[in-house]
Simulated assay, not measured.
Amino acid sequence: MGLSDFKSSNPAFTSYFWDGENKSSSKMTISGIFIKSLTSILIISFVTFCIWRLHADGYDVTWYSLGGIIASIILSVAISYKNHWAPVIVPLYAIAQGCFLGAFSAFIKDKFPDMPYQAIGVTIVTFFVMLILYQTRIIKVTQKLRSVIITASITIGVVYLISWILAFFDIKTFIWGTSWLAIIFTAVSAIVASFALLLDFDYIEKHKNTAEKSKEWLATWGLLVTLVWLYIEVLRLMQKLAIRF
């Protein structure tokens, strides 16, 4: 079975990005991905903190949220077609996500000051728990598990897309409320996002020391996509539980 046969639910880890992976003598390494991921996370954290300060000073940061998510989508499309631009696009993506997450979490922070920090903590713990489960092979990434996670991720994405479109027409779907159905949906989304990390770990492990060095930026982008998704779901779940109880 070739490397291109392995699949992941993360759009960054598709065979498209790994064509010609043996052209360079310098290969993708775990340490390289770690450094780039840590740098990107620090960028997101710094931008998020700046947005929080603006919000605290009375500035309307709504447009940062909207602009951040639109920029993130545009950059994701760009990196899908121009993967050799990844060293430039990934830092820009981190800035865009910082704007979105900063504004998104700032509104929640108003009513629940400690909640964003708690969500960050839960996200970090979840990351390492899933990494340990993967490394110890307590959970094995089989073809069946991969298919289930991919299907669940796509389904959740479609539900969100439909809900966002309907929101423009002032039609609120169940996912935005605090009903038990909404809470269950968000909880399931968070669980799927955490399991998506397993696919990311699996794909990186299969390509380490094989794919060319530049692919580290693409692997970094893939991890950012999953971690941001996980953080958002955890924060939304905590918010819904706090409001309901």
Rank of each mutant, 00 (worst) to 15 (best):
198 L>E: 01
138 I>C: 11
55 H>T: 07
182 A>D: 06
115 M>T: 09
29 T>N: 04
175 I>Y: 00
80 S>I: 04
233 E>M: 14
133 L>A: 06
188 V>W: 04
112 F>A: 10
156 I>C: 08
19 D>F: 09
37 S>A: 13
231 Y>E: 04
33 I>Q: 05
52 W>A: 08
109 K>Q: 14
70 I>S: 08
90 V>I: 12
236 R>G: 07
129 V>Y: 07
122 V>D: 02
44 I>G: 02
56 A>N: 14
12 A>K: 06
57 D>R: 15
8 S>D: 05
175 I>C: 01
92 L>T: 05
19 D>Q: 11
196 A>T: 14
190 A>M: 02
204 I>K: 12
217 W>Y: 05
234 V>K: 05
85 W>L: 09
131 L>A: 12
55 H>K: 13
143 Q>K: 13
118 Q>M: 15
58 G>Q: 01
73 I>T: 11
189 S>K: 06
60 D>I: 07
49 F>V: 13
87 P>M: 01
173 T>P: 02
144 K>P: 06
190 A>G: 01
204 I>H: 08
18 W>G: 07
61 V>A: 03
70 I>Q: 05
12 A>L: 10
237 L>G: 04
191 I>K: 03
238 M>L: 15
98 G>I: 02
8 S>E: 02
174 F>W: 10
165 I>W: 04
167 A>E: 15
106 A>E: 00
133 L>V: 04
37 S>H: 07
53 R>G: 14
